[in-house]
Nucleic acid binder design. Sequence first.
RNA 1: GGGGCCGUAGUUCAAUUUGGUUAGAGCGCCGGCCUGUCACGCCGGAGGUUGCGGGUUCGAGACCCGUCGGCCCCGCCA
Length: 589
Amino acid sequence: MKTEYRTHTCGELSAAHENQIVVLAGWVAKQRNHGGMVFIDLRDREGLIQIVFHPERDKPMTERAGRLRMEAVIAVRGRVTRRPQEMVNKDLRTGEIEIEAHELNVLNEARPLPFMIRDDNDASDELRFQYRYLDLRRPVMQKNMMLRHRAGQTVRRFFDEEGFTEIETPYLMKSTPEGARDYLVPSRIHRGRFYALPQSPQTYKQLLMIAGYDRYFQIVRCFRDEDLRADRQPEFTQIDVEMSFVGEEDVLNTVERLMARLFQEILGIHLDTPFPRLAYQEAMDRYGSDHPDLRFGMEIQDISDWACRVPFRVFQETLRKGGRVRGFKVENTFFSRRQTDDLTEYVRLLGVGGLIAVQWRDGEMISPLVRFLEDSQKNELTRLFNACEEDAIFLTADTEALCCESLGSLRKKIAENLNRVDTNRYSPLWVLDFPLLEWNEEERRYVARHHPFTSPNEEDWDLLETAPEKVRARAYDLVLNGYEIAGGSIRIHNRPMQDRMFGVLGLSPESAEDKFGFLLKALEYGAPPHGGIAFGFDRLVMLLAGETSIREVIAFPKTTSALSLMDGSPSGVGLEQLGELGLKINRKD
RNA sequence: GGGGCCGUAGUUCAAUUUGGUUAGAGCGCCGGCCUGUCACGCCGGAGGUUGCGGGUUCGAGACCCGUCGGCCCCGCCA
């Protein structure tokens, strides 16, 4: 990439350029001053190369080079030379060669750094976020950002080739009930009224289908004013997709081809298609999660039938109240008392009463449960889990929901602690047949599990008003290595069903009209059957990059408390600005 | 809203378990030496309101309360 300042980039040079006179520009990654000769590792986006300054050639220049500090920006003219055999650096891509400096131009000095620009730097996150522009100089971060770029380009190429049109949708839109808390934007022109930033372009993409665009996609920013996690930011990027005249298989198939393409182009990894599928209920029963990680076993089993014959009060009472007894096996591990105590504390925090470990020592079963068990019951338990004496079994007794939740979390935690997760594997999975609705105790009503535009399964239509919790949705989630990375559904495309759905959600016709009237009306003007999906692009890139936090693949992320440490947002604004918007701050402590 | 871990030199950490002399080390920074290093090496030096506020104590980096900030989790996230 030749420019006014350089003829080549550092990383692109090799022995093939031997004897060429080149000009490079970049940052001083490291300087090694030997009193006589001086070595400088020059870094740019493309890589690192060693520059050699010989005092015999130019003493003042060599001395200037010897005084350079890390991260000074310099340009160097010099000759590409092959290193003597014994001085080749095999750890460096350009290690066969070096640049014999003829001319040094210091373009900018750098102050002593708050932390060093190295991949193995272990600066605190706080400092990294504060000096994000320095953090982003680290090769690993540059790699992540470029991977993100390439993934985005692959997505665009794929959808373009598949006949999708990328259409931008508004960022200033109508605030709607249901779902996450909106970020609000006050209107200056219409005082007292607000726009909302989109939680997703859901309604717009449906309107685009009604408008006849057939296939739409967009790589788009979405905003949700909720608390953060390692895999959640208040603003995040979706690959938003919608298709007309499709059923589930059309969407799933398209997504599988996109995923296969991404993994091939970005990582050179072949993904087998079609992806495995699990029904929601099966995922919950076997893994205690609707987004299970299938890279390790430890499947959960229901042993209520066995437990009902054990005269252990907790089992008896739990089962009498309609709860379950479930557990899973951990192969080839013995947990110390201390460890089982810690794990018990862990599940207690999730809300279950306790955790029962079953293990063996010297051929004897050891467990708080042992004194309640006949020999035959011990054998039966062992057989149920197909366990041997090197294994450990963990059991909980509680409501079905708590059994799932606690054992699902515990399964994941133990696998991580014991390094039982094959981190080189990518394990995609479809989860299907989600319940359409779930009961919200706080609001005393049913809420949409996915969103209120999701089509109920036709076979379950009759249950909508009589047994809403039993209605299955035409929804699907794509799970990768235990992360939900995409979710979508076939939508409701006619007004009567959408009215019915709002009714089930406890939304009055007036309220539905007020909040979603524009969509309801549009459904009456020839809405085609349609469906789609949206990817969490940050999570997807995080997994492609082998990271465990999406902050590592977002250039300027927020902290856990939604602050931007670099620019100090959110910040206060002047009274003038507030006045213009007709706003008054009500500070209460 | 709740829980857990953490906050000591520019930086990464130690000293906290059991409160007790002058708060140490690596890297960086400054000065000197060093002509084939690539974590260059050697010698010397500067650098601290122990996040902030209060309390307990003869004495607090350490213990207690509050607060601010970071990370992780629960709730929340259609």
